[in-house]
Design a binder for these strands. Structure first.
Length: 499
RNA sequence: CGCGGGGUAGAGCAACGGUAGCUCGUCUGGCUCAUAACCAGGAGGCAGUGGGUUCAACUCCCACCCCCGCAACCA
């Protein structure tokens, strides 16, 4: 039986439209999922939206739109982005309005050990304007900076708490022994030192009033709504029909061979500490791997609505295409670190790697091939065979290590080898016999075919086009067909202008 | 205060106790099949600063300086 491979993106909250940073995570997860499929694994790839976050209701209110309508609209935009980026997710879960999720989240809650969930009175200064509790340090002159003049109220509320402290030792053991792999290492160390500094219990509910009736009810207590993280994290199993102990849940999670969450660095703590603790308490299998990617800056600056430097991924896709967008995000950003987006860098990469590199190589090989007509299969040069083999191995190794950017670099080395091969052998030369030319082009075609196969997980559209223009007319006759320009070179006319 | 990351050719990055490499850009030559693409070669770095250890440091140690995160919008 094929090994199972479960991978999830985080579920973003939908208080606003997605920006380019969301696209990064989707594309990374997608290439890992596609790669696993290509290697015959039984893949389940999940994405979704966190509809229940308080920020959603706040945003809806500011816009004067009912929450449900707001989250419906915005969740749809995220789904549209997935489609435009060619993300191959098998399912998409929404934490509101989906029975499987609501029942599942409640089941998870109820399954937690009784002694891990307790009620505690909490009192704090509540800002009616922000509708949230404020810490002393957040205040200026005892007033909320956002709502000066509005009096803060001392609110006392009873909430449920999760006894995280019960799991301190266990979590430390699981993480330090890599039973739960946290990648990269620096993120693992971060979590270990966080654990060592002592784990505080955390609130897992809020009053219905404060949550404005939006969210998942705490089972058996209609006055309380689950803290959004309890609810949101549960999506990873509720989507698999955890509520019904469904087949998918058993196959991909309980008996799953690989279970990966891919997330941004800002939510590592929730995934590496809270989530495993909740699962331990509920007696549910843990995920195996948490992969943490970095953040994107825009021209060296943090993404910020205030600065107005948010990049709309739809615009990028529209201008350069989905493959180019995927390529830039995957190649320019070290997959386990931060990256930077700018149109200047984007276009530089585009021209150098996609137009001049991949596109041009495909074009020259296919054009030469079409002119020659049928190509008889011949033995591949040893050097060429080695180059292909080495590229394959490098790509596999690097993907296994979550080094997506390095995997792509290995593919481009093969492209470069191909260019050199063609240059060195000069298949256009008049001195060469037809048979010789055919041999050379056949070798080049095999290189191209392998490049295309390796690109499948990363640039699916281009890879399909290349593959479909390399055809076996019979077992030992290859025919190449010229291809439209894959990535038109950008010149000053159609460059982005302002860099 | 503190914590974490970082300061290496024009830009982005890498490696290593003992000739400092890669990609992009740039210059020159070659080629002309290909998207003015491709191939080859060159120029370009006193390695943030100051000390120390060592036969030898960019690489180890110490001090200092600077940048970026760790408060908000924000993955």
């Amino acid at each position: 039986m094929a090994k199972t491979f479960y991978i999830s993106t985080s579920i973003p909250y939908v208080n606003a439209a997605p920006h380019i940073g969301h696209a990064l995570e989707f594309v990374q997860a997608d290439s890992l999922a596609r790669f696993a499929r290509q290697y015959g694994k039984d893949v389940f790839f999940l994405s979704g939206t966190d509809d229940n976050a308080l920020k959603n209701s706040q945003a809806a209110e500011v816009a004067g739109v009912p929450v449900k309508k707001w989250v419906d609209n915005h969740s749809a935009i995220f789904q549209k982005l997935l489609a435009e980026l060619n993300i191959s997710n098998d399912d998409f879960i929404r934490t509101s309005s989906e029975k499987r999720h609501i029942l599942g989240a409640q089941k998870l809650w109820s399954s937690c050990r009784q002694e891990d969930i307790y009620k505690k009175k909490y009192s704090g200064l509540y800002c009616l304007g922000c509708e949230e509790f404020k810490q002393e340090k957040d205040l200026t002159d005892n007033e909320c900076p956002e709502h000066p003049g509005k009096k803060l109220e001392l609110v006392e509320e009873e909430n449920y708490f999760f006894k995280l402290s019960n799991y301190q030792k266990q979590l430390e053991e699981i993480i330090s022994t890599d039973k739960l792999k946290i990648i990269p290492e620096s993120r693992k160390n971060e979590m270990l030192s966080f654990i060592k500094s002592g784990l505080d219990d955390f609130s897992i509910s809020r009053s219905r009033e404060r949550a404005k009736d939006w969210g998942v009810f705490v089972p058996g207590d209609d006055d309380q709504i689950m803290y959004v993280w309890f609810d949101a994290l549960a999506n990873y199993i509720t989507a698999l029909d955890y509520a019904d102990d469904g087949e998918k849940f058993n196959k991909y999670w309980v008996r799953g061979d690989e279970i990966i969450h891919i997330i941004g660095k800002g939510i590592n703590r929730f995934h590496s500490i809270y989530w495993p603790a909740m699962l331990l308490s509920a007696g549910v299998t843990l995920p195996k791997t948490i992969f943490i990617h970095g953040y994107l800056t825009i021209g060296g600056q943090k993404i910020s609505k205030t600065l107005g430097n948010v990049i709309d991924p739809f615009e990028v896709i529209k201008k350069y295409g989905s493959d180019a967008t995927r390529y830039f995000l995957l190649r320019e950003t070290p997959s386990d670190g931060d990256g930077d987006f700018s149109y200047a860098k984007f276009e530089e990469r585009y021209n150098a790697d996609l137009a001049n590199g991949l596109g041009n190589f495909a074009s020259r090989v296919l054009t030469l091939g079409e002119k020659l007509g049928k190509l008889a299969a011949v033995e591949i040069d040893q050097k060429t065979a080695d180059a292909i083999e080495s590229a394959r191995k490098l790509v596999t190794d690097r993907i296994t290590d979550f080094k997506i950017h390095d995997a792509l670099a290995a593919i481009w080395e093969l492209i470069s080898y191909g260019d050199k091969y063609v240059n060195d052998h000069k298949p256009w030369s008049a001195d060469l016999a037809e048979v010789e030319k055919q041999k050379i082009i056949f070798n080049a075609a095999i290189i191209l075919d392998n490049i295309s196969a390796l690109l499948q997980s990363f640039l699916p559209v281009a890879a399909d086009k290349i593959t479909s223009s390399i055809c076996w007319a019979s077992d030992d006759i290859l025919e190449l067909r010229k291809l439209e320009i894959l990535f038109p070179r950008l010149d000053s006319q159609n460059m982005h202008g302002l860099h």
